[in-house]
């Protein structure tokens, strides 16, 4: 794959228009209406759940137990009530700490590995890359028992450390994506750097890193959101210690632990979704390009 196959967002219409056969106007108009009507219907179905969740979040608890759709009164206080009945702030802080530190460590450790795999020829490179793919694709549950035992022997199974520390040693998925991207950077750039007498480290930092910025941004975003959404990891390691709960853990046990009704549960759900959606609108381009990167063609 090459970088220029990543489509720019606006190019949809220019590059793929259905073949124009000579047709009578009405048919084309009908076709136009049909596909836009379908798109609008689909859009309603995609947005529906979010709207219903938001509406329920504003109901009284009694009304949330009925099948009515529209709030009789608008209870904005539900949102502030969550902060008083649950340690939501603590969950947010923990989630931020987990996501940010894991992302930073992942970048520091994965970029050099990807660089070595993509830009340096050495014996065993192919094997190393195969192992990266294997680690990326094998379900984490396969090795969960011994790893849990390992962390337990260090007394860390009541914290988020078992999720953060491994990032010091690189993340297979990020290495894979970064490597794929770095392969597409033409050789001439690093050759030029070498002629100037730069070593591998300097070449990596000065030449390749700036050029790989889109891929780095993408893996950073993915890692951040993976951590932000992660449930399995915190459930395994942090659930015994309420002080290190993340948002995912909190929201999942919200209804059970705090004996609350659907309205507050939905309000909490909205609060968890909001930052993610805001970040998306701020960094939409990075998102879309990043996702496109993952759809690697062989």
């Amino acid at each position: 794959m090459s970088a220029d196959t990543v489509p720019a967002a606006g190019s949809a219409q220019d590059r793929l228009t259905p073949p124009s056969r000579p047709r009578r106007m009405p048919r084309a108009t009908l076709y136009w209406i049909a596909k836009h009507a379908l798109a609008i219907a689909l859009a309603l179905m995609f947005l529906g759940p979010l709207v219903f969740i938001a509406l329920t979040a504003l109901m009284t608890d009694a009304q949330a137990l009925t099948s009515q759709l529209w709030p009789q009164s608008w209870n904005w206080g539900n949102f502030s009530e969550i902060f008083t009945t649950t340690p939501l702030l603590r969950w947010i802080v923990n989630t931020m700490v987990y996501s940010l530190s894991a992302t930073a460590l992942m970048l520091a450790s994965s970029v050099p590995v990807a660089y070595a795999l993509a830009r340096i020829r050495f014996r065993g490179r192919k094997t190393a890359f195969l192992l990266v793919i294997l680690m990326m694709l094998l379900p984490p549950q396969v090795v969960a028992v011994p790893i849990y035992t390992l962390w337990a022997s260090m007394g860390l199974t009541n914290s988020l450390w078992p999720l953060i520390i491994p990032m010091v040693f690189g993340d297979a998925f990020s290495i894979f994506l970064l490597r794929q991207f770095m392969l597409t950077i033409p050789r001439e750039y690093s050759d030029a750097a070498r002629v100037d007498g730069c070593g591998e480290f300097t070449t990596m930092l000065r030449v390749i890193l700036p050029m790989a910025r889109p891929a780095i941004a993408a893996v950073a975003l993915f890692q951040f959101f993976y951590c932000w959404n992660d449930y399995y990891g915190p459930l395994l390691y942090a659930s015994t210690n309420a002080d290190s709960w993340t948002l995912s853990l909190g929201i999942a046990s919200f209804k059970a632990l705090h004996s609350v009704q659907w309205n507050l549960t939905m309000a909490a759900t909205i609060l968890v979704m909001a930052p993610v959606i805001i970040v998306f609108f701020l960094a939409q381009k990075v998102f879309i390009e990043g996702v496109t990167l993952t759809g690697v063609k062989g």
Partner: peptide, 8 residues
């Protein structure tokens, strides 16, 4: 159970 088994 998880906390005691995990040593914390």
């Amino acid at each position: 159970i998880q906390a005691i088994r995990g040593g914390t």
